[in-house]
Amino acid sequence: MKSIDSYLRTRFMPHIWCPGCGHGTVLNGLIRSVDAVGLNKNELVMVSGIGCSARIAGYLDFHTLHTLHGRALAFATGVKMSRPDLTILVPMGDGDALAIGGNHFIHAARRNIDITVIVLNNRIYGMTGGQFSPTSGCGIQATTAPYSSIDQPFDAVQLASAAGATFVARTTTYHVNELEQLLTRAIRHHGFSVVEVLSQCPTHFGRRNGHQETVEMLRHFKEGTAKVGSRQLAEQVDLIPRGVFVDEERPEYCDQYAEVIQRAQAARAGGAGGEEPQ
């Protein structure tokens, strides 16, 4: 492969992430998958929102659009609709994707627009100092849950699947090869693809919730998850499943809109196949 550096804006290194943060691992896996797919940097647009995850965009030498909290998919939809030939990558945090941006997330999935979303799920708002997120779940200590959280969590995989995403997968920052393989499949997939990556935030999640060391959090990813379809998962139902949950073909939004253009132009030309709307 080409050197990792050739994809990075190295003048911004070192990055802003804390020691032990999982987001750098995701960045690494993403670069490897982009290289594996063989994309030209000029064809790549990365759109991000706000949060630690969103800062990935600034480090990559693509066309990068660092937008508003939760709104990345809406900006990305505009880019993709205007230039369907471009490849769009959207890294999002759990709060970015599922709280403030939840509506955009489900509607982008519903449209099956060809965008690849990477949900970097560390179950906490890191950049703002450790508030609980929609994936924290019950019983978590956070700066806005001093008596432990009572909110039920979202399952990003189930949400994306139910909303209509046509490629849905989950992995962790421990499973780096799987991460690269799943991201490669997601980018190649023609339609709305979501890869949830369980990522560690030792600073704000681990420290408050009994994980003093990053290694402990990675061990939890290793031991607390199992592959979809594995015997281990069947035997231990409390494990978090990893792997591909949805991989199907459904008409992609921009392709369908290209047909709308054809119908409209045929109707205007008075030709067959088009009917002027009333």
């Binding site: 709104r71 809406a74 900006f75 939809t77 955009h104 809109y257």
Partner: peptide
């Protein structure tokens, strides 16, 4: 495109303008 709300409508036109 008919978006899911006005927030996303405004965001989408900004994205499209950049192309």
């Amino acid at each position: 495109i008919q978006m899911e709300d006005e927030i996303s409508s405004m965001a989408a036109i900004i994205g499209a303008s950049l192309t």
